[in-house]
């Protein structure tokens, strides 16, 4: 089977490529003209490299998309912008997805696996300590979220609209925060880094983390498991660490993090205060922290990977102690 992987040279993408190659698939990687493939080649390994082909092009170019999709049975859409303002993220995430989806509709692929984000849920509207699973609604006000999440929500909408038109056999993967070697364990789910100090909001809530290799195997399964078109899967580790555990792991690895603790109950009022100041000062400090965003990001919730475990026949194979060690090596 021929697989097309977008973003195949990236942190997650190259591991997806490796998983597929190990399953005996041929993989075409859709890469930008300037993307280096050293890491991808190293990840896949010399022995299996013959199963990988690279396609250089621009995901915003309909012709490039059509040529890349031609002959592919399953498409894994991993590529997305990670940073920048909303316009940049829309240009790098939403607009390319439209072109790719259109090409897949035309070419008639057998499966389209879209890598979304756990952030797309309207977690702010849930009660504290409620369970966030696939039945929770997507955020109804995406433009109030941070630019990355906004772009991921609209990106998923684009895929879902094509599915509802009956022309895209879609499976959606919503991973939590993906960590692993080279990326470390810290994320803004713990708190905000200000001037080299991590300001962490509370310490005890579970962080929705997923180790990169676990995520890659789940994505592979989303492509290969029959009969799951139209389904969505939250992909998370079995044991979700707390901020306290993450910082302890960093300490044990000899990489202590300078951090300042704030009680969880302070997040909401502080966010409101900051938001009011930002408005009063007409954006002297940009409204990066708002009540709406902080509720969605830092509200203590429970998470579940039960559906992914059951339907994808997938399970994380490493413990947090092991993945933390690998990530911080």
């Amino acid at each position: 089977m021929m697989m097309l992987v977008t973003g195949g040279a990236g942190f997650l993408g190259r591991r997806v490529v490796r998983e597929l190659v190990r399953e005996g698939c041929r993989v075409r990687c859709f890469l930008r003209p300037s993307t280096r493939i050293d890491d991808l080649r190293e990840c896949v390994g010399t022995r299996d490299w013959h199963a990988v082909e690279t396609f250089r092009g621009d995901l915003q170019d309909p012709d490039d998309c059509r040529r890349a999709v031609a002959g592919a049975d399953i498409v894994f859409h991993v590529a997305a912008g990670l940073s920048g303002g909303a316009a940049v993220l829309f240009a790098n995430t939403v607009m390319p997805t439209r072109q790719l989806v259109a090409a897949c509709e035309t070419e008639g692929v057998k499966r389209f696996v879209h890598v979304s984000s756990l952030g797309v849920y309207g977690a702010g509207s849930l009660r504290r300590h409620a369970l966030l699973d696939e039945s929770c609604p997507v955020d109804p006000h995406p433009h109030l979220r941070d630019p990355y999440t906004y772009s991921k929500i609209v990106q998923e909408q684009v895929c879902r609209e094509a599915f509802e038109r009956g022309r895209l056999p879609l499976v959606v993967i919503r991973p939590g925060v993906i960590y692993g070697p080279g990326r470390g364990l810290l994320s803004n789910r713990i708190g905000l880094t200000l001037g080299g100090t991590l300001v962490r909001f509370g310490s005890r809530r579970p962080l929705p983390y997923v180790y990169v290799d676990h995520c890659a195997t789940a994505i592979r399964q989303a492509g290969l498991t029959p009969g799951i078109e139209g389904e969505t899967f939250n992909v998370l580790d079995d044991h979700l660490p707390t901020a306290r555990e993450v910082l302890a792991a960093c300490r044990r690895a000899g990489r202590p993090v300078r951090s300042l603790w704030l009680p969880e109950s302070a997040i909401g009022p502080l966010s409101s205060l900051y938001e009011r100041y930002s408005r009063w000062s007409e954006g002297q400090l940009p409204a990066v922290l708002t009540r709406y965003r902080s509720d969605a990001m830092w509200k203590p919730l429970k998470f579940s990977n039960a559906r992914a475990r059951e339907r994808l026949r997938w399970a994380p194979h490493l413990s947090f102690e092991e993945t933390a060690q690998l990530s911080l090596a």
Binding site: A86, A87, F90, A91, H143, Y150, V154
Partner: peptide, 12 residues
Amino acid sequence: LHADLAEQAAAR
């Protein structure tokens, strides 16, 4: 010309 870009600017 790109509806997505106009939409995100208008919404925000």
